[in-house]
């Protein structure tokens, strides 16, 4: 038998510990969601699906979920269109100005969310966008843009610079060149960007707390309020559903790639 090197033991143990550190807090919501108590805690006597039933019976929860889904979809669409146009434009120019523009566009990732949300708040008050879906969509689109443009940039990184020239010499106008040649090459990046943009919007809480009051409630805000008002285990069932949904989507993605 091969002697096991101490390095190997060290790194293997480390890897498993990091995995456990990442995954265990996620998994703990599962037993909590199945609790038979009416407060957040582990099951006392038996497992119960009552909090799942509660989620599906509650108009507030369902409305918040639906709000998050449709806002997320619009945000993902807007961010994909804008981010892709931006990335393709920069790819075409590929000069100093476009390099600077790329850096400016990713600042939403670099600025702390609280600072940014404060900015949204001050600005949205002036524009009368507070507590409107439009306000949330605008803010989320801004936050999601960098993810789209970065993934489209990555998709175009290896595209031959002469390809637009080739297309034009073959008789295609600039518009035809972009639509028939560049956009198809950018498509994998657009798809990734769309998914990211949706997740950014679906997940976002700080901004929503700053710029909405009563009329607009997204799922993260509903969860947040659920924790504040009462310690309702429905939160755990919602979280579990989200974890399962994410796993399914990731698995489909992984299977399609292999």
């Amino acid at each position: 038998m091969m002697p096991v090197s101490p390095f190997r033991i060290f790194f293997q143990t480390g890897a498993w510990m990091v995995t456990a550190f990442l995954v265990l807090p996620l998994l703990v919501v599962i037993p909590v969601s199945l609790t038979d108590t009416s407060y957040i805690g582990l099951p006392k006597e038996h497992l119960s699906l009552q909090h799942y039933a509660n989620y599906f019976a509650s108009p507030d929860w369902l409305k918040a979920t639906w709000t998050s889904i449709w806002i997320g979809t619009i945000v993902a669409t807007c961010a994909t269109v804008l981010g892709t146009s931006f990335a393709i434009g920069c790819w075409f120019l590929s000069d100093r100005a476009s390099a600077i523009a790329r850096w400016v566009l990713i600042t939403p990732i670099l600025v702390p969310p609280v600072v940014q949300s404060l900015g949204f708040y001050r600005f949205w008050v002036k524009l009368g966008l507070i507590d409107t879906s439009t306000g949330v969509i605008l803010a989320h689109t801004l936050l999601a843009l960098p993810y789209v443009s970065i993934s489209v940039f990555a998709a175009l990184a290896n595209l031959d610079r002469n390809i637009p020239r080739a297309a034009r010499s073959l008789g295609a106008s600039v518009r035809q060149t972009v639509m028939a040649v560049i956009v198809p090459a950018a498509r994998p990046g657009m798809l990734t960007g769309f998914v990211f943009a949706f997740i950014v919007s679906f997940d976002e809480i700080v901004g929503v707390l700053f710029i909405t009051v009563r009329r607009v409630t997204t799922l993260p805000k509903q969860i947040w309020e659920g924790i504040q008002d009462n310690i309702d285990p429905t939160i755990a069932s919602v979280a579990t559903l989200l974890v399962i949904l994410t796993l399914i989507v990731t698995a489909i993605g992984a299977l399609r790639r292999s």
Binding site: L159, N162, A167, R168, S169, V181, P184, R187
Partner: peptide, 21 residues
């Protein structure tokens, strides 16, 4: 005149084939 109106075929060093077609 823009290149698309000139009717000149062009071949490039890096081939410049459209990768998605």
């Amino acid at each position: 005149q823009p290149p698309e109106h000139r009717d000149f075929g062009m071949v490039f060093q890096g081939y410049a084939l459209f990768p998605t077609m």
